[in-house]
Design a protein around this nucleic acid. Structure first.
Lengths: 179, 179
DNA sequence: GTCTATACGGGGATAGAC
DNA sequence: GTCTATCCCCGTATAGAC
């Protein structure tokens, strides 16, 4: 794995677990196993580091949209299924960048906006009724919100909802919107 | 309005609009129209300031739970209705404290957890089916997530969903869970 | 490609005047 | 009750050795 990727992993992990304030250059460097100077060789500034993470999210989102479009059980079910926390690269990067977006980082806000628009577009193809499509999108948002709040989403709470429990509800929403 | 309340308003507003990193003592003091020293007379440290905001959320939540319990259209509809951004004190404080929770602030995480548990408990009284109750809770979470992401939720986007559009979907969920 | 040393600014907090 | 002045620490970034 490239040094750049290792550093982005460390940055994302700290962002996810302890929030923006904890993402000092020394903390990121230490977690990646290099010194501050070493970090600044690969990313010339902290801004460059955040741009790197945003670019990574853009790539992961492109993959996700492709998979969602091809999902055998349909985009809505795919979307809700994959919004439940699975600790995958997209989950982690998305919640990390969401933190940046909340700190008014324009680039982060734009990529989050783009992500939600792309998801909604695919859900709409399956669910003609506008409000239902939005409700499904909101359920996914809610799942990410929970993950973001918990700080350490890996240690899922005992009362966390599972995809298996949630999908029948999505099915009912889909069926109800068909009339 | 007391000086304390004015300062908490300023702190919450900056947290909401620009994120934790922007909430320096000088910025909060300036927004409240006092000096740094003036602020530190009312709140002896930055921690005291955040505790103040968390206490405020606790009070607002108690009011909200009372109103939700007495809502004529039922707790679920009340919950979704009021989760749509209305720029009220609870909305603003909740999203502000959510930011603190994401920065691993224990007190903030606890009050957010408490809030979600209380909401879920009341929704459960109306919706016996567990997954549906969770789905309704998640729709509210999603609405708060959107508000948090936008940075300045006051300036609602044109594509934002309204309560009027969302409530029929909630009704269908309630009806579907009755069988 | 990675390190140490250092410069510089900003944020939190105290002391004390008014 | 609110202000200014000041201190110290820490975070970002640069310079230059290895």
């Amino acid at each position: 794995m490239s040094a750049r990727d290792t550093l982005l992993d460390a940055y994302g992990a700290i962002l996810l677990e302890n929030g923006q304030r904890a993402t000092t250059l020394s903390a990121v460097a230490a977690r990646a196993g290099v010194s501050k100077g070493g970090l600044l060789y690969h990313f010339t500034s902290k801004d460059a580091l955040t741009e790197g993470l945003i670019d990574r999210l853009d790539e992961l989102m492109a993959e996700d949209i492709t998979a969602m479009r091809a999902a055998p059980d349909g985009p809505s079910r795919y979307y809700v299924r994959t919004s439940v926390w699975t600790d995958c690269a997209l989950d982690r990067t998305l919640v990390a960048v969401a933190q940046l977006a909340q700190e008014s980082h324009t680039g982060a806000q734009e990529v989050m906006d783009r992500a939600r628009r792309q998801w909604l577009e695919l859900i709409r193809k399956e669910v003609s009724e506008e409000a239902t499509a939005h409700a499904i999108l909101l359920i996914g948002d809610g799942l990410y919100f929970d993950a973001a709040l918990s700080g350490n989403p890996g240690s899922s709470r005992e009362d966390a909802i599972t995809a298996a429990e949630l999908l029948p509800v999505v099915d009912r929403l889909l069926a109800g919107a068909q009339d």
